[in-house]
Write a protein that binds this DNA or RNA. Structure first.
Lengths: 160, 160
DNA sequence: CTACGAGTTCAAGTGAAGTTGAGGTCAAGC
DNA sequence: GCTTGACCTCAACTTCACTTGAACTCGTAG
């Protein structure tokens, strides 16, 4: 397989070209050269890209993910780091599991209100224990998945 | 128990006053009145606050959480909504479980590089299947307790 | 040669969830 | 009567992960 241009990488990875450029800027991927202006990517970039989403799912920022790659492109993660991440993930899983059970229960619970149900309340207690090391967002359902965007709106304020 | 001022709510809920004001602005909580300038809160606000963090953990935005409260402050969630959320949570849990296993394995795997390990690669395949309902950030290592993202997945097209 | 389309740069915008800061108000204490 | 400290408002700033837009450059087709 030979070098790919950005469109091909986009197509194979499912990521928009803008994201690929952004990732390159952030040091997450690198183009192997240029043909004219155009970036050329080694097919290996696909493997690298395949590591980024999971990294994010596991709770790393892009910057952290970038730090996991060694200069040669290999993954640079110690056993301790892997274990620590697995442990963190495990705690999250347990918490989410308790929530799922609570929700499941509430869906069939005869209590007059959810708050009147001890199971539901127990779930809240567990879910609320989001303090120590794994508070977080699980990206909500993509409801308005990029449908109509407002064309342009005057000026905006606060930003850099 | 009588009305509480913002400092007391902050203290009991563990949330900074700025967050409580922000939540009020967003319609997530309401103060029961004022004494002079100062907000007075009903103790019931604590219960309400106790629902917000779990809601976010379960993948709702603040706006969505706000929509779950009925006018009287009770929870307004249908069985279907609860079940759907439980299902979504379940999918997320499974995905995270696979990742945890992959990480756990990689931590003890004798393969020369993580990418050379089939178990690790399998984990990536699963973790990467982050499209429909639960892609997300799980707040990374507690560098500073803040920040949460909600990525908007650009739908993948010609992936293969 | 000109047009086209796909690529490029760089700056600015977006949205979520808050935080921070300046300047203002008020009740209580000295 | 003045200061203090807790609270107030409102706007601006922050972080993260991208996206969008304008203006530009190529290589290729006609």
């Amino acid at each position: 397989m030979k070098d790919m241009d950005i469109a091909e990488v986009a197509q194979r990875s499912g990521l928009p070209a803008s994201t690929l450029r952004f990732y390159e800027e952030k040091g997450l991927i690198a183009s192997i050269g240029r043909r004219g202006l155009r970036r050329l990517f080694d097919p290996g970039v696909l493997e690298r890209l395949s590591l980024i989403a999971p990294g994010r799912t596991a709770g790393f920022t892009l910057e952290e993910v970038a730090g996991m790659f060694a200069a040669d492109g290999s993954l640079r993660l110690s056993r301790e780091q892997l274990s620590a991440k697995a442990d963190a993930l495990d705690r999250t899983i347990r918490r989410l599991g308790a929530m799922r059970n609570g929700l499941r229960h509430a869906a069939t619970c005869p209590a007059p209100s959810h708050m009147a149900c001890p199971t539901f309340r127990r779930m809240l207690r567990i879910a609320g224990a989001t303090q120590s090391s794994g508070a977080g967002r699980m990206a909500s359902v993509p409801k308005s998945t990029k449908g109509a965007r407002s064309p342009k709106k005057a000026f905006a304020k606060g930003n850099r």
